[in-house]
Structure formats: structure tokens, C-alpha cells
């Protein structure tokens, strides 16, 4: 009988519901975890795989990244043979961020470390052209925030 009485008292007084209310009330007063993104920009860790950057000055046009890319979004154009002997920098370098899945598999095999992910993560754009990067738009400097877009037709012509 005491057991039944105890159960009845528990049923009528809602102790477990009250403790549940206590949990939500506790967090009512605690500081909130929301990040105010556009106002306060997050600092991404060093390894964050943001937008791909290529240092074209150190690139030796070995095409390792092109071969490693699972989405085939990298295209490297080597300079002509006689130039390549002395200057191995690519004549053209395309990265289509439209297809890039930020997997980091192009970064692993790069012998010079010239292709790497940056901490830049704001890549939304209204134009498809903005996602095709060539040697004029691939930055050398990580601090440059916004890049002029290349016009697709010109870019493709130059590359071919």
C-alpha cells in the first residue's frame, strides 16, 4: 500500500516534470551559445579546409594535384618545353570551386606545398564565373579578401 500511495503522490505532484523544468530554467540564465556570424567572424583553426589557394610562384606544374583530385576540378597547363626547362611555373591554372569538395586530397601529394587550403570560407556568389579561378584570380596573398572575377570566355580562350 505505501508503494501505491507513493506512486499516487508522485503522479499527482509531478516531481520528474519539475526537474525537467529545472533543466530548461537553468539554461535560461546561462550565456547563450549562438554565434553572431556576420557581426563576429569566427577564427578558423589552422587546418580548416577553406578555399583552395595556389602559390603560382612556387608551383612546378607537376600535375600531382590534378591527378589526385576526385572531382577533376583542377587543370594545370605546363609551359612549353623549352621554357619548362628553366621556368616551371604554369602558364595557366584552373580551379573550379563549383566542383571542389574541399577534401584536401590535392594538398597531400603537392611536392612544393604551393596548393593549400586557406581559412577563407565565404564563397557564396550569384555568378558561376566567380567559382572558376585562373592564374589572374588565384591569389598569391592570403590577406586579399575579394578577387576580381575573370570572364569565363576570356579565361577559357587563354587556357586553350
Amino acid at each position: 500500500m505505501p508503494g501505491a500511495l507513493h506512486r499516487l503522490v508522485r503522479m499527482m505532484t509531478f516531481p520528474e516534470l519539475a526537474s525537467g523544468l529545472g533543466v530548461t530554467f537553468k539554461w535560461f540564465h546561462k550565456p547563450k551559445v549562438t554565434e553572431f556570424y556576420p557581426d563576429k567572424r569566427p577564427v578558423l583553426p589552422y587546418r580548416a579546409k577553406g578555399r583552395l589557394h595556389v602559390d603560382l610562384e612556387t608551383c612546378i606544374s607537376c600535375k600531382m594535384c590534378e591527378r589526385a583530385c576526385p572531382e577533376d576540378c583542377i587543370k594545370v597547363f605546363q609551359p612549353p618545353k623549352e621554357v619548362f626547362k628553366t621556368d616551371k611555373r604554369p602558364v595557366q591554372f584552373f580551379i573550379s570551386l563549383e566542383h571542389c569538395i574541399h577534401c584536401g586530397m590535392c594538398v597531400d601529394p603537392c611536392p612544393t606545398g604551393s596548393i593549400h587550403h586557406s581559412q577563407e570560407f565565404e564563397m557564396a556568389s550569384y555568378l558561376r564565373n566567380d567559382y572558376l579561378f585562373d592564374r589572374t584570380t588565384l591569389p598569391y596573398d592570403l590577406d586579399v579578401k575579394h578577387f576580381k572575377q575573370g570572364i569565363l570566355e576570356n579565361v577559357v580562350e587563354k587556357g586553350q
Binding site: T24, W27, K32, T34
Partner: peptide
């Protein structure tokens, strides 16, 4: 707003 506060957001 209050729901947000209860749920640890703003």
C-alpha cells in the same frame, strides 16, 4: 525569444 533563451540560443 523566450524559447530561444530556454534553448541556449538568442
Amino acid at each position: 525569444r523566450l524559447l530561444g533563451f530556454f534553448q541556449s540560443r538568442v
